[in-house]
């Protein structure tokens, strides 16, 4: 049964997937080199959209460094967290030493993360878990990834209400955007190089159609286009 709402909620991922397919399809199917580069760009763009999508986190907050870290790292720590940001709220429930450490040891110290733990308890969070990572609703982007924290049950239920509220807060993680800016630079550079090459190829061959290029190369090498002269060449 198709859950239309489920699909509709994830429209941005569908755009990403469709664009990606279109891009790859163009690369595969078009013989014209410039068209290939166009396809490549579409493909890359789809990835940008994906990154931007995952930058939007429901229930997340700007990372605030825990005291323990702060004491050790002073200002640096704060800067660091700002740089890398807080994407999905604390999936690392199991890894105590990380910044995203689950709060089971000291829930009251990290309210933000408590929220995350609480979210993990919600039925929606548990539902799609394990079967639709890519299709996760934006609001629950992180949820399917969460294993229910073992020891945090009590604290979570105590804070259940707050968690529900917090889940509706949409937080924009800047890091993916930063990443994607870098990727865009790379993409533009690639496109430029590709187009420049296309120009040079046209100068050298007089065409930018793939079939013709291959035929030209084969004729230069074997005296015939591919497949026409498999017999003669062996002798």
């Amino acid at each position: 049964m198709i859950d239309l709402a489920f699909i509709a909620e994830r429209y941005n991922y569908w755009i990403f997937i469709v664009l990606m397919m279109i891009g790859v399809y163009i690369v595969i199917s078009r013989g014209n080199l410039v068209k290939k580069i166009v396809g490549l760009n579409i493909f890359q763009t789809s990835v940008f959209i994906y990154y931007i999508s995952i930058g939007k986190v429901a229930g997340g907050t700007a990372p605030i460094l825990p005291a323990a870290y702060e004491s050790g790292h002073e200002g640096k720590g704060a800067r660091a967290s700002a740089a890398h940001g807080e994407s999905a709220p604390a999936p690392g429930a199991a890894s105590g030493e990380s910044l995203h450490a689950a709060p089971q040891s000291a829930p009251e110290a990290l309210p933000a993360n408590d929220l995350a733990s609480a979210v993990a308890q919600t039925p929606q969070g548990a539902g799609p878990s394990g079967e639709a990572g890519l299709h996760a609703a934006p609001g629950e982007a992180a949820n399917p990834l969460l294993a229910p924290p073992d020891g945090a049950g009590d604290a979570a239920s105590a804070l259940g209400e707050a968690a529900h509220k917090a889940a509706e807060i949409v937080y924009s993680n800047p890091l993916p955007h930063v990443l994607i800016l870098t990727a865009i630079v790379v993409g533009v550079a690639t496109t430029a190089v590709g187009l420049a090459l296309a120009v040079r190829i046209r100068e050298a061959y007089g065409t930018i159609e793939e079939d013709e290029l291959e035929a030209a190369d084969d004729i230069a090498e074997f005296g015939a286009a591919f497949g026409e002269k498999a017999e003669g060449a062996r002798a």
Partner: peptide
Amino acid sequence: HATGTLNLADLHLKLAGQHNRV
């Protein structure tokens, strides 16, 4: 998306036990 980190060592730690489609 799954872990929230890009550091390789950190990724390893965060990925531990994560068995999902992402």
